[in-house]
């Protein structure tokens, strides 16, 4: 049964796109067929991590939402990031970076049934096992849609008070949307903080499972958003934790 995994955070800068891309790559590496949808229509960015040039993406999620094209035409094979010979493992549905396209979607909005139907078709057409939804931070109508559609919701937060408060709202709203499975991921944790203690506290505060605690990684910082950490540093602690997270959420 294919699963839709939405990744959300209350505030920006939590490392959402990076985490999404890395988790998707790891799953693809394990032999699953994985898709990633960039629903961050206001500020798309994940295509950069997959080396997808907007010039090469004549069709995007925006085009599908306006009925300009079939969803299949907005799906791009980005398996090459896994290795030069790799094909048909990892797919991306990008958002348009053209300001006109962005304004139009934001102005008119779109319907959840249409989005859901698009995902269903993409999953079917490309025989996907997992579809990751990278969302815009905050709780606007579009992100609520992504949460409502998800089989598994991952909420990223950093260990600071603003994130703690916003995450509390997100968790409660997601519960009311009856998301089947929900996990928290604490990201950018200072290396000095004990991960286990932090995980226990977060679990207790939100009555929600913590899938993993990711340390603030200097290597990841150095790479910026130009590379996929789990591919370039497969043996680093961070990559191991990402693998653990996958094991937990796909169990």
């Amino acid at each position: 049964m294919p699963k839709i995994i939405a990744i959300h955070s209350f505030r920006g800068g939590t490392g959402k796109s990076n985490t999404t891309a890395n988790l998707a790559c790891l799953l693809a590496r394990q032999g699953r067929r994985v898709g990633v949808v960039d629903t961050d229509i206001q500020s798309p960015g994940i295509h950069v991590l997959f080396n997808l040039d907007p010039k090469d993406t004549p069709h995007t999620l925006n085009d599908f939402l306006w009925g300009k094209c079939d969803i299949g035409r907005a799906v791009y094979d980005v398996s090459r990031v896994l290795g030069p010979e790799e094909r048909e493992k990892l797919f991306l549905i990008p958002s348009s970076i053209r300001t006109g396209d962005i304004a139009r979607v934001l102005h008119y909005g779109y319907d959840i049934n249409l989005l859901k139907e698009g995902y269903r078709k993409a999953i079917e057409q490309f025989a996907l096992d997992y579809l990751f939804i990278d969302t815009h931070p905050g709780l606007n109508e579009e992100t609520l849609m992504s949460i409502a559609i998800a089989d598994i919701l991952l909420i990223l937060l950093r260990p600071d008070q603003q994130d703690y408060q916003g995450t509390a709202v997100t968790v409660e709203v997601s519960r009311q949307l009856e998301v089947p499975r929900m996990f928290l991921i604490v990201n950018k944790v200072p290396a000095a903080l004990p991960g286990d203690a932090l995980a226990a506290k977060v679990t207790a505060a939100y009555a929600c499972d913590v899938a993993g605690v990711l340390p603030h990684a200097d290597e990841m910082m150095a790479l910026g958003s130009s590379g996929l950490f789990c591919l370039t540093h497969p043996d680093a602690v961070l990559s191991r934790i990402l693998e653990d997270i996958l094991r937990r959420i796909t169990a």
């Binding site: 959840i112 049934n113 859901k116 109508e141 609520l144 849609m145 409502a148 559609i149 009311q176 949307l177 009856e178």
Partner: peptide, 12 residues
């Protein structure tokens, strides 16, 4: 909006 969304989500 939320109530509608919740209904739709429940349906699918």
């Amino acid at each position: 909006y939320f109530r509608t969304l919740k209904d739709k989500a429940r349906k699918f």
